[in-house]
Lab assay of single mutants.
Amino acid sequence: AVSDRLIGRKGVVMEAISPQNSGLVKVDGETWRATSGTVLDVGEEVSVKAIEGVKLVVEKLE
Score class of each variant (00 low, 15 high):
residue 9 R to W: 15
residue 4 D to P: 05
residue 30 E to I: 07
residue 6 L to W: 08
residue 41 D to S: 13
residue 16 A to N: 12
residue 18 S to L: 06
residue 10 K to R: 13
residue 15 E to N: 09
residue 26 K to H: 10
residue 58 V to R: 00
residue 52 E to A: 09
residue 35 T to G: 07
residue 48 V to E: 00
residue 57 V to L: 09
residue 60 K to P: 07
residue 59 E to S: 12
residue 61 L to H: 08
residue 50 A to P: 01
residue 53 G to L: 04
residue 2 V to I: 15
residue 5 R to S: 14
residue 61 L to D: 08
residue 39 V to H: 14
residue 18 S to D: 09
residue 38 T to K: 10
residue 53 G to H: 05
residue 1 A to F: 05
residue 36 S to V: 01
residue 37 G to D: 11
residue 21 N to H: 11
residue 33 R to L: 09
residue 8 G to P: 02
residue 6 L to E: 02
residue 36 S to G: 05
residue 34 A to M: 01
residue 34 A to K: 00
residue 24 L to W: 15
residue 23 G to D: 00
residue 23 G to V: 02
residue 61 L to T: 11
residue 17 I to V: 08
residue 61 L to W: 10
residue 43 G to A: 07
residue 14 M to N: 05
residue 19 P to D: 06
residue 11 G to H: 00
residue 41 D to H: 13
residue 4 D to A: 09
residue 26 K to Q: 11
residue 25 V to M: 02
residue 27 V to H: 01
residue 34 A to H: 01
residue 4 D to F: 03
residue 12 V to K: 07
residue 45 E to H: 14
residue 3 S to T: 14
residue 23 G to H: 01
residue 9 R to H: 07
residue 47 S to F: 12
residue 32 W to M: 04
residue 30 E to K: 06
residue 44 E to Q: 13
residue 16 A to Q: 14
residue 43 G to L: 08
residue 9 R to M: 15
residue 23 G to C: 02
residue 37 G to P: 13
residue 48 V to P: 01
residue 59 E to W: 14
residue 31 T to C: 05
residue 33 R to V: 08
residue 59 E to Y: 15
residue 3 S to D: 14
residue 39 V to D: 11
residue 61 L to E: 07
residue 34 A to G: 04
residue 53 G to C: 04
residue 14 M to E: 08
residue 8 G to T: 03
residue 13 V to C: 04
residue 33 R to E: 07
residue 16 A to D: 06
residue 27 V to E: 00
residue 21 N to Q: 12
residue 62 E to G: 09
residue 5 R to C: 09
residue 59 E to T: 11
residue 14 M to L: 13
residue 48 V to Y: 00
residue 10 K to W: 11
residue 5 R to G: 10
residue 13 V to R: 00
residue 38 T to R: 11
residue 38 T to A: 13
residue 18 S to R: 14
residue 42 V to W: 05
residue 2 V to D: 14
residue 43 G to F: 08
residue 32 W to R: 03
residue 3 S to W: 04
residue 4 D to T: 14
residue 4 D to S: 11
residue 51 I to P: 01
residue 53 G to T: 04
residue 52 E to V: 14
residue 11 G to V: 03
residue 47 S to R: 14
residue 40 L to T: 03
residue 51 I to M: 08
residue 38 T to H: 08
residue 32 W to T: 02
residue 20 Q to R: 13
residue 47 S to H: 13
residue 59 E to Q: 11
residue 16 A to I: 11
residue 34 A to C: 04
residue 43 G to W: 08
residue 42 V to Q: 08
residue 10 K to S: 06
residue 7 I to N: 03
residue 26 K to I: 09
residue 53 G to K: 04
residue 36 S to E: 01
residue 31 T to Q: 06
residue 50 A to V: 04
residue 5 R to K: 12
residue 6 L to Q: 03
residue 60 K to A: 06
residue 12 V to T: 09
residue 53 G to Q: 04
residue 56 L to K: 00
residue 62 E to F: 15
residue 31 T to M: 11
residue 58 V to H: 00
residue 17 I to M: 06
residue 28 D to A: 12
residue 44 E to W: 12
residue 23 G to Q: 01
residue 19 P to K: 07
residue 20 Q to T: 13
residue 33 R to D: 05
residue 16 A to V: 09
residue 46 V to W: 00
residue 33 R to H: 07
residue 39 V to G: 07
residue 26 K to E: 11
residue 51 I to T: 06
residue 1 A to L: 11
residue 12 V to H: 08
residue 39 V to A: 13
residue 16 A to T: 12
residue 30 E to T: 05
residue 5 R to H: 08
residue 27 V to A: 03
residue 1 A to S: 11
residue 40 L to W: 04
residue 30 E to S: 05
residue 32 W to C: 03
residue 27 V to N: 00
residue 36 S to H: 02
residue 55 K to D: 13
residue 7 I to M: 09
residue 23 G to N: 01
residue 59 E to R: 09
residue 27 V to R: 01
residue 16 A to S: 09
